[in-house]
């Protein structure tokens, strides 16, 4: 077993917690991968901000219909029972508490549930898209992320240093090393790689871990 989960394995782990029939929004990029790993017998219904419910796989190359895209502007297909709606209805679904799960990527997530995933600072052209809406309203807001940045700094922190997307909004974090819940403004460790000690995990985490009696093994298949 490698020393950390791949992105596909993190996405696989997040997918295991999605219930059959759940309404789910997957953020642009890495989170889109979660759709590939739905467990057999569990069929989520995927929502995209630009007004589609119940979309499916990407079409085969050459058969794209560019009026049928997701929020990442990628071509999609429809499953039976899909629906189109306008943008105000779409974000009504988001803010109105109708989505069961939103899964997002991040730059930083803090122990108080604050999320920073839209801006790395004042350089260049700012762009926010739907991120600031998506973090409010879904019954569960989960983050999938590498546990540390490319240069090894913790992405799970006491307080976010980067511009916030939302305050106190994240409920669960799936990383390359662990699964954690955010409860009472603390990271509660639920699962960790069996090859890693709690002390090793704490050393790469920027906030104190709460250790319940039961900590599961984070194990994902080779993907």
């Amino acid at each position: 077993m490698s020393t950390k989960l791949s992105n596909a394995q993190i996405a696989w782990r997040a997918a295991q917690d999605i219930e059959d029939g759940a309404y789910v929004n997957l953020g642009i990029g890495f989170p889109e991968m979660v759709a590939k790993f739905q467990p057999p017998g569990k069929q989520a219904i995927f929502h995209t901000e630009n007004g589609v419910l119940n979309f499916g796989e990407a079409p085969v190359e050459g058969e794209e219909d560019w009026d049928l895209i997701n929020a990442g502007k990628k071509a999609i297909t429809l499953r039976p029972g899909a629906a189109f709606f306008h943008h105000a209805d779409s974000f009504g679904m988001v803010r109105g508490g109708h989505l069961d799960v939103a899964i997002l990527g991040t730059y930083e997530v803090a122990e108080n549930g604050d999320l920073a995933n839209w801006s790395t600072g004042p350089r260049g052209v700012p762009a926010v898209g739907g991120a600031m809406d998506l973090v409010h309203g879904a019954k569960r807001v989960a983050v999938i992320t590498d546990h540390v940045t490319k240069d090894g700094r913790p992405k799970l922190v006491k307080r976010c240093a980067l511009p916030l997307t939302g305050v106190g909004c994240v409920t669960r974090v799936y990383t390359s090393l662990a699964v954690l819940d955010i409860e009472d403004e603390r990271f509660v460790l639920r699962e960790k790689l069996p090859t890693m000690s709690v002390a090793e995990l704490q050393a790469v985490t920027g906030a104190e871990l709460v250790l319940p009696d039961q900590i599961g093994d984070l194990v994902a298949p080779e993907l």
């Binding site: 901000e49 943008h87 105000a88 974000f91 803010r95 052209v125 762009a127 926010v128």
Partner: peptide, 12 residues
């Protein structure tokens, strides 16, 4: 000029 508005806020 740019007025940046979150997408759901823009729609609403």
């Amino acid at each position: 000029g740019l007025e940046l508005v979150p997408q759901g806020t823009l729609a609403e």
